[in-house]
Design a protein around this nucleic acid. Sequence first.
DNA 1: TACATCGGAGATCATTATAGTCCCCGATTA
DNA 2: TAATCGGGGACTATAATGATCTCCGATGTA
Lengths: 157, 157
Amino acid sequence: MLKISKKADYALMALQHIASVQFGDVTPGRVVNTKEIAEEYNIPLELLAKVLQALAKNGMIDSHNGPKGGYLLARSARHITIAQILESIEGPLGITDCSHEKEGEICMQREHCNIRTPLLKVQDSIYQLLNNMTLQDMLGGTPLITIQSAATQGVER
Amino acid sequence: MLKISKKADYALMALQHIASVQFGDVTPGRVVNTKEIAEEYNIPLELLAKVLQALAKNGMIDSHNGPKGGYLLARSARHITIAQILESIEGPLGITDCSHEKEGEICMQREHCNIRTPLLKVQDSIYQLLNNMTLQDMLGGTPLITIQSAATQGVER
DNA sequence: TACATCGGAGATCATTATAGTCCCCGATTA
DNA sequence: TAATCGGGGACTATAATGATCTCCGATGTA
């Protein structure tokens, strides 16, 4: 349950790769193209292309056309949160259907629904968790500590 | 993203209803049948039946056959966690495909996967969140406080 | 003991979401 | 000016979900 899509997985892998290249010691600032990532991680090229396009549209990365083109992080890895990445691919977080009801949509259970409020609180907590962990946290060697502090911060807000 | 299924929604509504009847002031201890819940919350009867059967199989509720039959909580509402309920319906929590890899299943990205470890930490945090909130917490009037403490506890473990 | 009422369970179907593919375009740069 | 890149639309296959139908066995009660 609560599984994220393959596309979201690919997005995280790709961003992690781009970040590690861009801020690594070997070739800092190098532009990374789709093919390189697809081959490195065994991701279908054209599917990854869609994912990266979505990330670019949502301002996570900047794209560069033409030969030697590719992608760069749009901002520092510490200012890109996991929540932002996932939402770029899968849309807004919503553990229930009624999280984002549009005009005209009516929940059949709404009249006597007894779980809406508590579920929205759970959703908030999960969001804080994801929004307080950044791409930077996925790069380093102490992910556990980082996540723990993130979770705590999320709750204390 | 991270949406739970309608079935899981129904399960939460049904258990909340059963708990409130069983421990309420009006008819404490009364057995609740499927039809009653389905009509109260506009849930398709036969789908709800499946959900309740699954909950019974997983030890969340006890079933009673025959006329005047129905369901009762198998234990107190404070010992039934949201995680247990959701897992009864949707299976184990796993935000990534590789969370529960069985023999013979191989992740194509495993060899160079750079996100597995941090994602499993995120998953743990979410699990703690869900496992520290109980059905009891969904009944009362202070769900926010309960969830917050749950999140904090989950992290501190 | 007959019967209406309940849950248990399997098969089936429609709809939607996901994963992946194919093709063509425009931008860029060597 | 040609090869290399991203942008984007259409498309297909497969799986998951939501829902329905049918039949069975258990059980309380008239």
